[in-house]
Design a binder for these strands. Structure first.
Lengths: 97, 97
DNA sequence: TAAGGTAGTCATGTTTTTCTGACTAATTGT
DNA sequence: ACAATTAGTCAGAAAAACATGACTACCTTA
């Protein structure tokens, strides 16, 4: 049982909480990300963690999964509309420190 | 060993991550908070968790501890300057949903 | 003197999150 | 045929977060 979310900001904070999601989000702001690419960039991250993080970011509508049917079959994750709407918040957080 | 924080927003996200910190922060925006008061308001939260959350929020400079030397000795936690600077970010997060 | 409220701490146990390493499956290059 | 790259999944172990209940210490009221 989950109690009703009485704090609206809490949901979005939760979507970005965890060991790797903030970094994945930041990288995704720069451009499309891919599974193995992230695995290389995020030192110490396990396949498992990256897979779960990507899945949840997608489920929460922050990233969009795109299958590219070329050559060795690529899968990209792009920032969704909702994801892009979070960029200003991120910028604001960065400016505070 | 903690790797250098390459994502500036990440630090602040971490300061607000956890089961109770977002709610505590939100309540603190309304006014001073106290230990037992929070324990009553946050259904399901343990003394332990509230104590740790308050300590970390204070260590991270988002809350300020104030000892009120009256009657049965009260301890208040107020939003610091830094904590107040986070309010607009919270508002923005709320507006996004 | 005992009860109740203040604000916690501490040891222990459970639950959640994360990591490790093996494995799958399709495609490409040697 | 074999190795490597793509993108994962899965079982199990370790680590981190959280809950439970007992306990401390100070102060006030009955």
């Amino acid at each position: 049982m989950e109690s009703a979310n009485s704090c609206p900001a809490e949901g979005l904070l939760k979507m970005l909480s965890g060991k790797w999601k903030p970094q994945i989000f930041r990288i995704a702001v720069e451009g499309p990300v891919r599974f193995n690419g992230l695995l290389r960039q995020l030192e110490g991250a396990s396949k498992q963690s990256v897979a779960v993080a990507l899945k949840e970011l997608e489920e929460n509508g922050l990233l969009e999964k795109v299958v590219i049917k070329l050559k060795p079959l690529h899968i990209e994750y792009n920032l969704s509309q909702k994801g892009q709407s979070l960029i200003p918040v991120f910028r604001q957080l960065e400016s505070l420190q």
